[in-house]
């Protein structure tokens, strides 16, 4: 962003310097006249008028553009849309013999037609306040930042749930917003739109820490099988598969642990069957129920 701004400033600075130089030259000799339109839009083209007679050399220097053309004084100079595609300040110079005349031409961006949309983060826990941010940069068709006011609509939706919508006025081509994550896990479609143009990003809304973790035991061939109920967060979203659930069995003398992975919503492991042993379960900072083998819960 700052680099782009810096480049733009450099372009304007260069154009201004050239204009100043040309105006100094023009002051010395005003045998020919060059007139430029007051308002030009990017890619729209423009007609510049000249006066005087004879031939002259026409120069146009602007952002990303430099052209030189032989013209006849007194005739119009037609500039195509392609010549004026980049918004910004251009310098037009007309040179005949030893005399030169310059004029400055300001090309404005065209209508908003494209958005560059940054959505952060790519993954967010559910029900988090102001956790999602979106920044939209408004451009015209020719990659010119549209600095005039424009309304950008941000829309965040998960599945069938009602979307959250914000309308934000872009300032100097930039609009931004912060949104809460939804209570429902899933791939949230985060869309920024302006007019008919919209850009979609996906923000993965993931389950938060497990909540109400519970497990039960069952006898197995080599010990005891421990298995959780479906592991969910406090919003009822299933905790993603692969999440570690730790079972710990202590019998007063020894300890056995298994870091089981949640598979299809359930974590399961096998532990030694030691009568009287206490089995606990935890996942991250969340702890669950306890079971004493051969005893009550």
């Amino acid at each position: 962003m700052s680099a782009a701004g810096g480049t733009s400033r450099n372009r304007y600075g260069l154009a201004a310097a050239l204009t100043a130089l040309a105006m100094l030259m023009a002051h010395a000799a005003a045998a020919q006249q060059l007139r430029v339109p007051d308002h030009v839009v990017a890619n729209a083209g423009a007609t510049l008028t000249t006066s005087g007679d004879g031939s002259a050399t026409f120069y146009l220097v602007g952002p990303g553009t430099a052209l030189k053309r032989e013209v006849k004084l007194g005739e119009a100079i037609e500039l195509s849309g392609a010549d004026l595609r980049n918004a910004g300040r251009y310098s037009a110079i007309l040179k005949a013999g030893g005399n030169a005349q310059a004029a400055s031409l300001l090309v404005a961006p065209a209508q908003p037609a494209a958005i560059n949309f940054m959505a952060r983060p790519s993954r967010v826990p559910v029900a988090a306040h102001d956790a999602i941010s979106g920044v939209a940069f408004v451009f015209d068709d020719y990659k010119n930042l549209v600095t005039s006011p424009a309304q950008v609509t941000f829309n965040l939706a998960v599945g069938d749930a009602a979307p959250i919508t914000r309308k934000v006025e872009a300032r100097e081509g930039i609009a931004w917003t912060r949104l809460d994550s939804a209570r429902k896990a899933g791939a949230a479609q985060f869309v920024a739109s302006i007019g008919d143009t919209n850009v979609r990003r996906v923000v993965q809304q993931v389950a938060s820490d497990p909540c109400g973790l519970r497990f039960h035991t069952a006898p197995a061939k080599n010990g005891v099988t421990v298995e959780t109920d479906p592991v969910k967060d406090c919003s009822g979203n299933p905790v993603p598969d692969g999440t570690i659930v730790t079972f710990v069995e202590t019998d007063g003398r020894t300890r056995s642990t298994v870091d089981a992975r949640i598979k299809r919503g359930i974590a399961q492991a096998e532990l030694p069957a030691v009568p009287g042993a206490l089995i606990t379960v935890a996942s991250g900072v969340a702890t669950g129920n306890e079971v004493r083998l051969g005893g009550g819960k």
């Binding site: 003398r253 056995s256 298994v258 030694p272």
Partner: peptide, 24 residues
């Protein structure tokens, strides 16, 4: 996500040299 390695029968013992060891 694999492999799953269970750590069973963890206990602290003292070896023949008198050093404590965590075994399992």
């Amino acid at each position: 996500a694999d492999p799953v390695i269970a750590v069973l029968h963890q206990r602290i013992e003292t070896d023949a040299r008198g050093h404590k060891l965590l075994k399992g």
